[in-house]
Design a protein around this nucleic acid. Sequence first.
DNA 1: GTTCTAGAAC
DNA 2: GTTCTAGAAC
Length: 201
Amino acid sequence: MGTKRSLNDHELESSAKKTAGHWSKGLLSSMEDPELKVEEDDTTVVIKDKYPKAEVHYLILPKEDISDMSKLQKRHLPLLKNMFAIGERIMEENPNREIRLGFHAVASMSRLHMHVISQDFNSKCLKTKRHWNSFTSSYFVPASSIIAELEKNGCIKRMASKTAESLLATPLKCHKCSLEPKTMPQLKTHLMTHFKKSGCT
DNA sequence: GTTCTAGAAC
DNA sequence: GTTCTAGAAC
């Protein structure tokens, strides 16, 4: 007799892959997720990062399918400046927070995305040295630098993989003082001394 | 990118 | 014994 059964984990994962695609394409579905989408205009979408690494963490993405910074040309300058202006407006909307706008030198997720991230780094999703270094070392490239480079050279030079990996593997260092904590839990405890939790007075 | 977990570090 | 990191994921 044929017995009905539900899919096992492996089969569920395979079928999810067919619908969702490889994990590195995940931003495409995030852009269409109403739970994550914050706003959009003719050329861009703003979403909440699915795994925010700080209290404020948005991604600004072009609607045009641009895989990464190596595909940028001078014709993209108006688009990038619009993304930058949206980021600056979000900064103005959060006057009490320090917020940075930038790109990862080598991004894991394949659609071009600009990070809008507050410098509290108070988030349970911030877990690894790699996370920390990707936002606090020169692996995080300011949006203004990308725009300036594109204006000057007409393209963005890709960081060598070796350089990028060594930045991510650098020992932990606080972004606000000289402390060099040995572990991530130590760093996260230390961060609370720089940023008082808001709300309760 | 995340999840999971073996085994290193403590 | 517990905490923490780092590598595989077919």
